[in-house]
C-alpha cells in the first residue's frame, strides 16, 4: 500500500464516517422517538414520509436553516467552539472502530487507548459550552457533567484494563478476532474472569453515564436545568451537541460490542460474520439504552457519585483482582494472556 492511496483511503473513510455519524444521529432520533412512543403506547413520528421516516430530514433542514443565536453575554469564542469540541472527538473515535475485518479506517495498535483519549475531550466540550453560555443553569450543568464524567471514567477504565489484561492487546480488531463465536465472547468467558457479565454491566452503566444518557442525564435534567449546557444554543449549535451525543452513544455501544460481544463476529459458526453483525449488536445495545432512558427517573448527583464510588469502583477493582489471579493461575488458551 503506497502513501497516496492510503491518504485517499483515509479521506474516503473520514467522509464516510462523518456522513455515518450525522445520518446515524438523525435516524437514532427517529428510532428514539419510535421506541419511546411504543413504550408509551403511542406511535411516534408518522406524518412525514412512511412511518415518519423523512422526519429526521425535515428536522435537519429546520435546524440548519434556523438562526444561530449568539446571546449578548456569552463568551463568543468558547460558545462557538463547544459544539465542535463535542462532535469532533466523537467522530475521530470512529476511525479505529472495526465495522468488519477490513472495514476500519485506521487500524492502530493502541486503538482502545485512542478512543478513551478522545472520549475525555468530550467532557471538555460540555464544560466549555456550559461556561461560555453565561447562563446559571448551564454553569450548574457543566459542573455536574464534569464531576459525573470524572467519577465514571474510573470504573470504566478499570474494567477496560481488566479486559486488556485478558486480551493482551489494545488493537480493537484483534480483540474481536479472539471472540469467534458466542461461547468465546468475553461477556461469557468465565474462565478468564468469573465476573465477566458484571464487568459488562459495569461497562454499560459507565458508558451511559459518560454519554449523559438517562438515568444519568444530570447535565440536561430538563425538569431542573431547562436543557443544561445547551440551554442557550439554537439551530445547528444545538444540532451539533445532539449529533455529538448520539455519536458518543454509538461509540460507547460499539466498544461494548467489541470488548464483550464479539464485534463483527457471528455468534454461531455457520453464519458468516461481517459488518451487519456489528451493526445489529450495536443497534441492539442502543435500543437497550433507549429502553432504559424511557423507563427510569433521573438520579441525583449524590446518587450518581454514590453508585460510582461505593458500588462500581469496588466491584470493578474486585473484578480486576480476580481476573489477575485467574490469569496467573490458568492462562487462557484462546487469548493472548
Amino acid at each position: 500500500m503506497n502513501a497516496s492511496t492510503e491518504v485517499y483511503r483515509l479521506i474516503a473513510f473520514l467522509v464516510g464516517l462523518i456522513a455515518f455519524a450525522a445520518l446515524n444521529a438523525a435516524y437514532l432520533v427517529w428510532l428514539e422517538r419510535k421506541v419511546c412512543g411504543h413504550i408509551q403506547r403511542r406511535i411516534g413520528p408518522k406524518e412525514v414520509g412512511p412511518y415518519g421516516l423523512l422526519q429526521p430530514i425535515a428536522d435537519g433542514i429546520k435546524l440548519m436553516t434556523k438562526q444561530v443565536m449568539l446571546p449578548p453575554q456569552v463568551d463568543p469564542v468558547l460558545f462557538r467552539i463547544a459544539p465542535a469540541l463535542v462532535l469532533i472527538p466523537a467522530v475521530m473515535s470512529f476511525v479505529v472502530i472495526p465495522f468488519s475485518e477490513n472495514l476500519v479506517a485506521r487500524e492502530i495498535n493502541v486503538g482502545l487507548l485512542m478512543v478513551f483519549a478522545f472520549a475525555s475531550v468530550n467532557v471538555l466540550g460540555l464544560l466549555v459550552g456550559g461556561w461560555g453560555s453565561a447562563n446559571k443553569y448551564a454553569v450548574i450543568s457543566a459542573a455536574r457533567c464534569v464531576s459525573q464524567n470524572v467519577a465514571y471514567e474510573i470504573p470504566m477504565l478499570i474494567t477496560v484494563i481488566t479486559m486488556v489484561m485478558i486480551t493482551g492487546t489494545m488493537n480493537l480488531n484483534e480483540i474481536v478476532m479472539q471472540q469467534p463465536d458466542i461461547t468465546r465472547w468475553y461477556v461469557f468467558r468465565f474462565t478468564a474472569s468469573p465476573l465477566a457479565p458484571v464487568a459488562f454491566i459495569i461497562f454499560f452503566i459507565c458508558s451511559l453515564a459518560e454519554t449523559n444518557r438517562a438515568p444519568f442525564d444530570l447535565g440536561e435534567a430538563e425538569s431542573e436545568l431547562i436543557a443544561g449546557f445547551h440551554t442557550e444554543y439554537s439551530g445547528m449549535g444545538f444540532g451539533l451537541f445532539f449529533m455529538g451525543e448520539y455519536a458518543n452513544i454509538v461509540i460507547g455501544t460499539s466498544l461494548a460490542t467489541i470488548l464483550f460481544l464479539g464485534g463483527w463476529q457471528s455468534p454461531v459458526p455457520f453464519i458468516p460474520g461481517g459488518w451487519w453483525w456489528f451493526l445489529a449488536k450495536v443497534y441492539f445495545l442502543i435500543f437497550c439504552v433507549m429502553w432504559i432512558r424511557w423507563t427510569y427517573p433521573r438520579t441525583t448527583l449524590w446518587g450518581l457519585l454514590n453508585l460510582s464510588w461505593k458500588i462500581l469502583i469496588p466491584i470493578s477493582l474486585l473484578n480486576l483482582l480476580l481476573t489477575g489471579g485467574m490469569l496467573k493461575l490458568m492462562p487462557l488458551a484462546g487469548g493472548a494472556g
Partner: peptide, 15 residues
C-alpha cells in the same frame, strides 16, 4: 415522576 426525570409513567397515568 416527570419532575424526577421519568417520562413514561406520565403517559401511562394519562391513559
Amino acid at each position: 415522576v416527570l419532575d424526577l426525570g421519568g417520562f413514561t409513567p406520565l403517559l401511562y397515568a394519562f391513559d
